[in-house]
Computed example of a mutant assay.
Amino acid sequence: MRRLVLTAALLALATGCTKDDTQASDGVIEPIANPHQPGDFMPLPDPEAQAGSVGRAPRRLTVSQLDAAIIEAVGQRWTELDSRATSMGRADYALVVSENTEPNLVFAKFLEDGARKVCLNQANAELRMTDPSARTLGRLMPETWVDLTLMTDAEVRAQLVYMSTRFWGSPLAGEELTKWTSFFTQAAARVKTLPASKRHETLAVVCIAMLTDPRFITY
């Protein structure tokens, strides 16, 4: 009797399997939803609506990073930075325990003051250097700076590409390079009318402009 029941159960199981296999082979596979259909995913932001970038917002340099960046780009330290560091966002770990890296007018004002000092000092020092390889800013400038309006357009562009790469890690190019070339040429023409002791100011004004550009203080 037990053998008969077992046999019946096996037959029923075999019948069920055959039925399921038939249904599986004759059935229709349900379509899988396309994960790339509109509405199924979050599209990337439009670069044109994000100032040309996609991703996290730019971050401003900390005071310590700014200190190191000025030394690397210009070739000398801004000696007054420490006295302005707290106002520019450095934590004192007494009342303020986190670094402030938000762009603000106080930071911009102090940075402009520092840029004027280090750029004028460095450019004035390099004016007296006859070996271009010893210079930090004017590496591709002429040996003497009697009249920088005599520099060719190619020479000015090469100098600006060198400086922009040094300051921003990205070379000027295209229309923007043309605008900066015009700026350099106008500065040189203006400085030509000043006393000889001011000849370094052409390089200095370009240095100040690049040092206070948002590309220098953000990453």
Rank of each mutant, 00 (worst) to 15 (best):
G174C: 03
A188N: 05
T181D: 10
A187W: 04
V156K: 01
S182D: 14
E176N: 13
E176C: 08
A154I: 05
G174E: 07
Y162P: 00
P171N: 01
A187D: 10
D153M: 11
K192F: 02
P171C: 07
T152R: 08
K179A: 14
R199L: 05
Y162M: 06
M163F: 12
A187V: 03
L172V: 00
A204Y: 02
R190C: 00
A188M: 06
L150K: 14
L150F: 15
A187N: 09
P195M: 11
V161A: 03
F167L: 06
Y162F: 11
P171S: 07
L150D: 13
E201A: 09
Q186H: 13
E176P: 09
A189C: 05
R157H: 11
K179R: 15
A204R: 01
A196E: 12
Y162T: 02
Q159K: 08
R157C: 02
T165H: 14
T165M: 11
L172G: 03
R166K: 15
T202N: 08
L148A: 03
L203V: 11
P195E: 09
F183I: 09
A154W: 00
G174A: 08
L150G: 09
F183P: 09
A196N: 13
V205S: 01
A196C: 05
A187E: 09
S182G: 09
A154R: 04
F167W: 08
E201Q: 12
L177D: 02
R199D: 00
K179H: 15
L148W: 01
T149P: 02
K192S: 02
A173H: 10
A173Q: 15
T202A: 04
W168V: 06
T185W: 05
V161G: 07
V205F: 02
E176G: 03
K192A: 06
S197D: 14
W180N: 05
S170D: 15
R199V: 02
V205I: 10
Q159N: 14
S182T: 15
G174D: 07
G169Q: 10
Y162Q: 07
W168A: 08
T178K: 15
T165P: 13
K198Y: 12
R190M: 11
R199H: 07
M163T: 01
A158V: 05
K192G: 01
S197M: 09
P171V: 00
L160V: 02
S182P: 00
R190F: 03
R166V: 06
A189F: 04
Y162D: 14
A158P: 01
T185C: 06
S164Y: 06
E175F: 10
A204E: 03
R157Q: 14
R166W: 12
F183R: 12
V205L: 04
E176H: 11
E155L: 04
Q159V: 05
K192I: 01
K179D: 13
S197T: 14
M163Y: 07
L203Y: 06
L194E: 12
M151D: 07
M163L: 15
S197R: 11
T181Q: 09
K192D: 04
E176W: 10
L150V: 12
R166I: 06
S170P: 08
P195W: 09
S197A: 13
W168M: 06
L160G: 02
R190Y: 07
T149S: 12
A196S: 12
A196T: 13
T181K: 06
A158Q: 13
G174N: 08
T202K: 02
K198H: 13
L203N: 05
L172I: 04
V161F: 04
F167H: 03
R199A: 01
T178R: 14
